[in-house]
Each structure stands twice: as C-alpha cells, then as structure tokens.
Design a binder for these strands. Structure first.
Lengths: 195, 195
DNA sequence: GAGTGATCTGAACGCCCGTTCAGTTCAAGG
DNA sequence: CCTTGAACTGAACGGGCGTTCAGATCACTC
C-alpha cells in the first residue's frame, strides 16, 4: 500500500530534512539511523532514498544550506560606515541569527568531523568566508585607530566563539528576551576589542 | 594464546583509556567501536571488559576525570585579592589548561548528549561548579565597582565560551606561543567586562 | 476507463555493533 | 614441578546498520 491521498513528493522531501535536522541536533549524526528518521517522517526507510542519495549527503546538505543562508543573511544586512557600529551590528546579527536556529548551529559546529574530507573542505570554505567578514571589520577598526587588538585573527576566533556560545545556554522564554541578549553580547564584543 | 611476556593489567588499563580518549575526540563516541579501541590497544574487544564495565562508563569516566582534574587544578591556583587580577589569572589558567588538553576538551563539550541522564546530571554538576567559580569573580568585581556588567550570569557563559574556543583553532607550533595566546585572551576578557 | 509513472512498501543484502563466555596461555607462588 | 589465577583469545549472541530493489498502489492524463 502506498500513497494515501494525493502527491507527497513536495511534502516528504522537506519533512525528511526537517526530521533529520531535529534528530541530528538532538542525538548526533552517528547515533541517528535512517530508520529513525523514516519513522519520524512516517515512511519506510527505503523511501528516503528518493529524496537523498545517502546519509552523508543529507548531513552535508543541511550544513551547506545553513551556511549559505547565513552568508546570504549577512550580505543583506545594512552596513554602517563606523567600525564600532559595524561590529555592534555584526554581533547583534550573529547572536540573533543563531538564537533563532539552535538545531542548525548545533549541527554545523558538532558534526564537522562526520563529513567526508571533500565535504568538510567545502563547509570550511563557507565558514571561513563568514569569519573573514568579521575579520575585515576588525581590521578596519584597527586601521581607523578605534580598536586596540594585538591579533585580529585571534580576536575574530574569540568573538565568534563568544557570540555563538549564546545558543548553548539560551532558552526560549527564559530570564532575558533575545534582543536583550544580543544587545549585551554586542556590548561585550565592543569592549573586548577596546572600542 | 595470551600474555606474551609479563603482567599487563597496569598497562592495558591506561592504554584503553588513552586510546578511547584519542578516538572519541577524533571521530566521536557514537562513531567509534569497541573493536576499534581494542585494535589500538593491541587486544581483542572482549579483553576491554576486564577494565571497563561498558562503553558508556568508559565515556563517563573520561569526562568525570577531566572535570575533576580541572576543578583540582583551579583550586590549586593562587588567588589574587584584586578582582581584575583574579579574572586575568582565571582566564590565563583556563586557556592554558584547555590548550594542553584538546582531546579532553573536545570530548567534554561534544559528547554530553551521549551520556545517560544520570551520568549527564553528574557531569553537569561538576561543570556548574567550575562556572560558579568564574561567576563569583565577576560578582566580586561588580560589587567592588571595577566591572561593569548588565548580567553576570550571561557574562560567565560568554567568557567561558570565548576562552574555551581557543582550543578549537590553536595548533602546536603555530604562529603564536600558548603563553601569548593566553595573555591576549586574558586581556580581551578583562576588557569585555569593562575592567 | 485504460495506461502511466510517481510514490512507497517490505524484504533482503552483507556487515558491524556491544557484550558474554568457555577455554587457553603463562608468570609467579608454594 | 605443580598449581593457581590473572590476562587474554576467539567465537558466538541477538540485533541494528545503510542501502537496494522488485513489486504494489493509486492520482492523474488522454
């Protein structure tokens, strides 16, 4: 028996990705089986292979989609001229974007080692492009004399780690609203670079 | 055939832990099999069960040992009276300790979700004790009027994420020596809290 | 209303998993 | 020299894994 009512291709596909995203984030790529994902979708395991070539590609596509969206959203941001204002805007954007997507963030940061070497290289390239955007802001600030940084590259890594960390403890409906969280992080980022 | 020369109990035990630590850090707990660990030790899989009750306990013991050592080392630190000096000392200690133990850090931060609920609770308790040590420093600094922080708890999480992140990009023999790295991070931490 | 093709099932493939255990080996103690 | 027991092997257990595929189903087209 198959296909209860109407066509499901445009429903099952997104549902597969959605179920995989949630399960990978909760239990980890290696600990989740295709049969578990299929059960979540409400389908037999074999049917998943109509929508993904294999489990590895499923993971890669989720991570690539996340980073593509992140870079697109960053590019869409308005970009103030003042380095301090740019850094504050970046920090607010980064925290806000990551608080909205805890599952994607978890996967993107935890499952890198489960990618094949080629897939890993592709993801790292995208991640590096994002880091470079922040590093460019810091370099401008240093050139303008408003930031005091012994090492812009190190500062880039430090700030990204700090800002991304927000999604590890933030819980919806907690003590602080997300705008306030983003605001405090932006303030700490500005101070950390000596602005 | 077994036991080529002499007694191996006091050798195989530590070798098991060491191999498990390295493999878990590189590939992840769920992706590593007991047979892989056994091969690294140079033994059949069954022999591992003379030294650990099961795979889960092996993971838990590694994480607990790491956090116990971390708390012990923190307690052994000299503790300056001035809040700024204390924060700087904490930051230098944290970065240095984590740079020396990349495998343990990786496991402690990535494999929490592979712990059983009881084991997870035990590890979280230890981790919280460590976070509280930092939060106490921040609270003192705020009380003394030398730190400006809208939210000490948030600042604690932000600083720990920033400092721990060092072990994600630092490579032995890289551009910066570890003392310099710890120094820069300590400076950023001080500035981030408005010291 | 017959035929088509997208969609899915259910069974199978070979393989690896964590764990157990009877049996083997061998350094050391009496 | 014999016995003991720690240390380990090698095979087995039941089960789950990712993936494939022939066949069933059924909304749709003509």
């Amino acid at each position: 028996m198959a296909r209860k009512t109407g066509s499901h291709a445009d429903i099952t596909g997104p549902r597969l990705r959605s179920a995989a995203r949630a399960l990978f984030a909760r239990h980890g790529y290696a600990a989740v089986s295709m049969r578990q994902i299929a059960a979540e979708v409400g389908v037999q395991a074999g049917a998943l292979y109509l929508y993904t070539t294999d489990k590895q590609t499923l993971l890669f596509d989720l991570m690539k989609e996340h980073l593509d969206d992140l870079l697109t959203a960053l590019a869409a941001q308005v970009c103030p001229a003042d380095p301090s204002a740019r850094l504050a805007a970046f920090a607010r954007f980064h925290v806000g974007y990551h608080l909205d997507r805890p599952a994607e963030v978890f996967i993107a940061y935890m499952e890198l080692r489960n990618l094949t070497p080629e897939n890993f290289a592709a993801i790292e390239r995208l991640r590096h492009r994002y880091e470079d955007a922040l590093q460019a802001i810091l370099a401008e600030g240093v050139a303008a004399g408003v930031f005091r940084l012994p090492d812009p590259r190190l500062a880039t890594m430090a700030l990204i780690a700090m800002l991304t960390g927000a999604s590890q403890w933030y819980r919806e409906g907690g003590r602080l609203p997300r705008e306030k969280v983003a605001e405090i992080y932006a303030e700490m980022a500005l101070r950390a670079v000596g602005a």
